[in-house]
Nucleic acid binder design. Structure first.
Lengths: 136, 136
DNA sequence: CTAGAACTTAAAGTCAACTTTAAGTCAAAC
DNA sequence: GTTTGACTTAAAGTTGACTTTAAGTTCTAG
């Protein structure tokens, strides 16, 4: 399989695949006359990369995951640690997104006549203060 | 209030505040001898910007929101439209994050002996295929 | 009155994850 | 056998949200 076909099958641009190779997420494949030729295993790996990246993992994380999770090996402890950390991060993301959603809903459906009122009624000022005391 | 104090109170860097001004999120304040002097209303506004940005809004969005939501005006229809769109986006984010969390949980607690097995058992291949058919 | 902290500007740098460009090589169809 | 489309490389460009730098000005404490 040439790079263009692989790219099409994975829903990516060929340049992205070369980039993954450069970044060490993908092993350099065999070549025929200077051009890359991929196996279906490569396809699997590229799909996995895309999936993880869609799911919010950075390429650096994915690289770690893929190195900790060899194709035919069981899921190891290093991998599990990473996964656990990521789960926590996800949960924080979910909580944060829900807070925003609730807040927007409140703003959207309240009958306040000014921003000041909304901020007051929705307890936004507490949020603001919490933020101000630097947890960035 | 000088820019440094405002920055400290908002938990931001002074350069960020100048940046917001340049980007049109913040009106240019009065000056004393060339230096910016801020009121507590500016503080409120900066806090609101920070809050929204923490909540995942882009500065462009925040600019729109702030322009649609004048300090003493009621929440208008343009603003509501934006808010509704953002709520939908949030819900998608939440759903996506939950999917990832579930998946990671599955991978973490399964007793598969290889990645191939996990991918199969967790229905990951369906996810991969869905992804592959280009909804990027 | 002076040292030094905090301010000013415009412009350039940073990060991630790619894409685009330029200049060239290879392959598939006619 | 030539044209056209797909491939190759290294290097530079993109986006968003800032930060850093450089060179200079102003404020404040002693």
């Amino acid at each position: 399989m040439k790079i263009g076909e692989l790219a099409a099958q994975a829903g990516l641009n060929a340049s992205a695949i070369r980039y993954y190779e450069r970044m060490g997420l993908l092993a350099a494949p065999q070549r025929s006359g200077g051009q890359r030729r991929y196996s279906s295993e490569s396809r699997q790996r590229v799909l996995l990369i895309r999936f993880a990246s869609e799911m919010g993992f950075t390429l650096a994380e994915i690289k770690l995951f893929l190195n900790g999770l060899r194709d035919a090996a069981p899921v190891g402890p290093r991998w599990k640690k990473l996964a656990r950390a990521k789960i926590v991060e996800m949960q924080r993301n979910i909580a944060r997104a829900r807070r925003l959603e609730k807040l927007l809903h409140g703003l959207l459906h309240c009958r306040c006549r000014s921003l000041q009122e909304c901020v007051h009624r929705l307890g936004l000022s507490q949020n603001l203060r919490r933020l101000a005391s630097g947890d960035r």
